[in-house]
């Protein structure tokens, strides 16, 4: 199953280049891109953008920046970010629940905003800053949102918890003194089935103040 595993650098695992017949699929070659766009794009992305290449459907080599570390992996273009994280990188904190951009269990933070990782292609996450639940605490200390989740018993089965923690962190990152209505708005893209919202609301409200 080597094609399903990340590899750490050149020479490990199969590398997939563009398909044969690549040149016919190249629309505009050698066109420069504006400085603004360069800033927003990763190196691999710039290369791809500059050649306007068609890639896939076979696996494509991409680089993801996750919690400050770069990961190289080969993905079919259809692979979603959640599947890349969970199936290929063993980052299983984010959960796949509705898989349709509704329940928020897959929430990660990309370039500072909470997103549904079930609804972003991994290939589209290239060149962007991805934060997952695995990256927000250290061995010694949890993030204030996580601390408050424990303090307020904001979890039962816990399957929605990582997504709610990340949505909560996104609230705290942006607003050090959210009102309860702000908290409810910021959490509205996440659904819990056991019914933990009483603790979750308090936890995020307190944590935002604490991490301010």
């Amino acid at each position: 199953m080597s094609s399903n595993k990340p590899h750490d650098g050149p020479g490990e695992g199969p590398r997939y280049g563009p398909r044969k017949g690549f040149s016919r699929r190249t629309f505009i070659e050698g066109v420069g891109i504006g400085a603004g766009a360069v800033g927003a794009l990763g190196a691999a992305d710039q290369a791809r953008a500059a050649t306007n290449e068609v890639v896939g459907p076979d696996p494509v080599s991409i680089t993801l920046s996750i919690n400050g570390k770069t990961h190289k992996l080969d993905v079919e273009p259809r692979v979603t970010l959640i599947d890349a994280l969970r199936n290929m990188l063993d980052h299983t904190g984010a959960k796949k629940v509705c898989d349709r951009a509704t329940c928020g269990a897959c929430t990660v933070i990309v370039d500072g905003s909470p997103v549904y990782s079930c609804t972003m292609l991994a290939i589209e996450a290239e060149g962007r800053r991805i934060e997952t639940i695995e990256g927000i605490s250290s061995d010694d200390a949890m993030h204030p949102v996580q601390v408050q989740f424990v303090e307020h018993d904001a979890q039962q089965c816990g399957f929605c918890t990582p997504g709610l923690v990340m949505a909560g962190k996104a609230i705290a990152d942006r607003n050090p003194r959210p009102s309860m209505a702000d908290v409810e708005s910021g959490l509205c893209g996440n659904i819990c089935r056991c019914g933990t919202y009483v603790g979750v609301r308090k936890a995020v409200y307190e944590a935002a103040r604490e991490s301010a």
Partner: peptide
């Protein structure tokens, strides 16, 4: 279903 992917840099392409 799998697909090929392209991310052009202008609207014409």
């Amino acid at each position: 279903q799998n697909f090929e992917y392209i991310a052009p840099i202008n609207t014409l392409s």
